[in-house]
Design a protein around this nucleic acid. Sequence first.
RNA 1: UGCCGAGUGGUGUAGUGGUAGCACACAGGACUUUGGAUCCUAUGGCCCGGGUUCGAGUCCCGGCUCGGCAGCCA
Length: 551
Amino acid sequence: MPSDFIRDIINEHNKTERFGGRVHTRFPPEPNGYLHIGHAKSVCLNFGIAAEYKGLCNLRFDDTNPAKEEVEYVESIIEDVRWLGFDWQDRLFYASDYFEQMYDYAMQLIKAGKAYVDDSSADEIRESRGTLTQPGKESPYRNRTVEENLDLFQRMRAGEFEDGSRVLRAKIDMASPNLNMRDPVMYRILHAEHHRTGSKWCIYPMYDWAHGLEDSIERITHSICTLEFEDHRPLYDWFLDELGVYHPQQIEFARLNLTYTIMSKRNLRQLVEKSDVRGWDDPRMPTVSGLRRRGYTPESIRTFAERIGIAKTDSTIEVALLEHCIREDLNKRAPRVMAVLHPLRIVIDNYREGKIEEMEAVNNPEDPGMGTHKVPFSRVLYIEQDDFMERPPKEFFRLAPGREVRLRYAYIIKCVSVVNDKAGKAVELHCTYDPETRSGEAGSSRKVKGTIHWVSAEHALKAEVRIYDRLFTVENPGDVADVETVLNPHSLQTVTGYLEPSLKSATPGGKYQFERLGYFCVDAKDSSPEKLVFNRTVTLRDTWAKIAKKL
RNA sequence: UGCCGAGUGGUGUAGUGGUAGCACACAGGACUUUGGAUCCUAUGGCCCGGGUUCGAGUCCCGGCUCGGCAGCCA
């Protein structure tokens, strides 16, 4: 069980019986965009804590702003939370289900002389709010009678007034050093169609007013949110105390930041709208749907969420940790296959034309229980262009003129000649094989420096392979004024890959390790049996790349 | 220069008065029919200054730095 300041607080509450030993959290997204990895952190935290303490966690849509919210988003959020592996049973709630009760509570506050209808314009309210260093000024409407406020508020609800003409405000303290306490707006008039309540309402509650009530109504014990709401906690507490209702504890933690990644919904939406990516679920997006399509597993994301920890310090996690988590998971479960993405044709001169052998390949060296499968071998093969160099440095131990290398699960071959094109680029290799060295047989114990992967040209399956790189060229794209300027133009490279024939039966979402290259998955949207499409999830650790870089 | 909050290796995160630990990254090595995986080893840290104490990352005081807040967004 992880240890962090939130669990410390819960342990303390359990000790003092503040909530009678109960633990009940909630994940409260606003349905105005797709969930991203930062939300996943919160989902794992809230549902994870509930599970650890044998408590409950609700899924609740904070749908108080009809102007920005859509059912498409609620559907995607439900799918994503479920995919991450969490269950809210029958506790799927919507803030909009509580509108009537919130209205009653507002009437109660008005009757207590703690809220008033303000006829000021938005501009006037902003100007009278004061500044960070100067107190605000009280509204001329602040001291209306309770009767007048009641009447006006009822008429606001009845639709008698235009958008923006009036608001309901809490009467707190215009001189408070905490701006949130300077008579915050509780309701605004919005004649807008709500995705659930239709046109039933034309006044909508503001976050600060609504959120605590939602938590209170659901008997939440620990209302976990991000740091920027720290200043709002006094207001959260004020509303609940003035109403005298059940009062959860709000706790704030630092949101997730990732290197080379943007997390704000605004920026993510911009990428989608400007077609910098192919939608919210583009595999380059840090959205849960993007990661899923990219080939990330729920387990890897949960592990990641656990490893990054929970704290109040603003921090930025290196994206390498996320990549480590998916490699670690896929290493244990992904079957190994061979695929050549940048083919170089080789002919084994001394291998009889038309001869075909079935080589036995291990499905996963980490798990012998996964068995083996056959791969056809023949005279003409493809190997990776990177696995051959005409003038290799001494650190390179793959194929080169006159050098030997092992073909994975097959024979040791030697390169005897190179065919170059006009530009001098190697386009075909002629090799000989050593018949004594077939994998698994007596002579196969002979050692050579390198082993490379291959596919038989005549048996190869062609597929579209999408190779992804980071979306941004800088570590902190979120700090840049316009993210368009730091987009990586090479974040997607599409190639035709040559795959071993066993992949014929690959189904959408299927995850594989292409030996020596990385983990790849069948694209869930664009792949079909006629035209397979693979996404590269993540590369394997590449020691050679590091060496080559230093040369 | 208002209010709130945060400062522990490169990046994160533990440590609640008693040997500063873990993960990732990085460097080296072992092993290897994936330059994968695995294993081993190394480098590297308590923002600063005072104070309390036998003893301070931890408690106190004073600084410094960074983040958040002036939507009828959440």
